[in-house]
Design a protein around this nucleic acid. Structure first.
Lengths: 218, 218
DNA sequence: CCGCGGGTCAACCAAAAGGTTGATCTGCGT
DNA sequence: ACGCAGATCAACCTTTTGGTTGACCCGCGG
């Protein structure tokens, strides 16, 4: 049997070693290559494709220190930057904030797993992704279901995006520039956010959004 | 030769597997046990001591999801909660905030390494700790040197108190009432805080203060 | 004793944020 | 075709913050 060929993308050597050790215990799964960042990941994908040994699944961390973050790398892979057809990308990260989950899904990720998941779950997710399916960690799935069932205090993707920038301390003008919209639009979004979160200023919005894990702590 | 016996403490199975794989490649180092949290770590230490197989070095993560955090666990170990003499504790974590480093050192840690360090550095640190020495990652050492050369202005107790309330989203008026001072005084404190943190608005102050662990996340 | 820093307050002005109304455009589902 | 919701923008006004200056009191250390 051919086996599922995997590319590990994580900036921590320790984590890469852990995943390699964990995955090598499973039948039918082999780690074809590793990358410590988004740019290296794209290079590895191209290299392996040129060798006629394309990877079947990319295991990608989201937070990666200096360089390209995982969401951007996923977008580039899915856009065919490392050749087509693009392999499925399975996110394996530490945090499960709405902001991260939505960004990853929009970037084209096939799944979203947490690093504290038991090995068996990760194996299942890899198999699922390789077969063209999807895989969500139970916690993640629960959060998404909650969003669907309870649309009352549901923030839109754009609003969450704005909230995330808000939490870094940027003034409206800077947020507007980052999102390529006008300051007026930023204010409109903020008013909506305040209404949905039941607050009346940006600081309280950040507090509530952080507690509800709508955004990850700055 | 006896070999150095290690206890791994980390809440992520993936990371534990990685460290186990990495360390097992080194001569003279064996992983005696693992723990997924601070409480389990103390239990493991006691158990192994009772078996007459005490560990020589504890490899400890700082951020551990739900239960006891790494600093607290280190304090307890050093206080003899798992028997004396207490083994050296080597911190191995993702973040290198000043607050984390200082807290770890104060708790009695023998070293502070980052998870993105190359395996050889981690091996050196383990050997050093086992021999009763200390080990600091270059980045960490650099930060400490920087602090000594360029001490960041410390926030006063009152300022931190105010910052904590600020992070909950209260406007100045409400903060004033909570602290039984006038709004003018709140503004004066805020100006001082902004100056010390190098920001110019309350939202950024919260962001910076949270990152530096000056205040706990809302 | 005197300076110094922390904490308290006031008055004033400038800038940013909050709130309202109303408008256009887009995609999506019926 | 239609309504609806999300996203976008403008103009206007009020409230809150930010920034400056100056002042007073207190405790601690040289």
């Amino acid at each position: 049997m051919t086996g599922i060929r995997i590319l590990l993308v994580d900036d921590h050597p320790v984590v890469r070693a852990g995943l390699r050790a964990m995955l090598s215990d499973f039948e039918g799964i082999t780690v074809a290559a590793e990358a410590g960042g988004g740019a290296a990941a794209l290079a590895q994908l191209s290299r392996l494709r040129a060798l006629g040994e394309p990877v079947d699944v990319v295991l990608m961390d989201l937070q990666m220190g200096a360089g390209m973050d995982g969401v951007t790398a996923t977008e580039k892979i899915k856009a065919g930057a490392a050749g087509t057809p693009a392999p499925p990308v399975l996110i394996l990260t530490t945090y499960d904030s709405d902001a991260d989950i939505l960004a990853a899904v929009e970037a084209g990720a096939s799944g979203y797993m947490l690093k504290d998941a038991p090995p068996e779950h990760i194996r299942q997710a890899v198999l699922s992704a390789a077969a063209g399916g999807t895989a969500l960690a139970p916690e993640v799935a629960a959060r998404l279901m909650g969003r669907i069932r309870n649309p009352e205090p549901a923030l839109s993707g754009r609003e969450i995006e704005l909230l995330q920038l808000l939490s870094t301390g940027l003034p409206n003008r800077a947020i507007a520039r980052k999102l390529f919209i006008s300051e007026a639009t930023v204010k409109t979004h903020l008013v909506h956010i305040y209404g949905k979160l039941g607050v009346d200023n940006r600081t309280a919005a950040i507090s509530v959004a952080t507690q509800r894990r709508i955004i990850r702590p700055a």
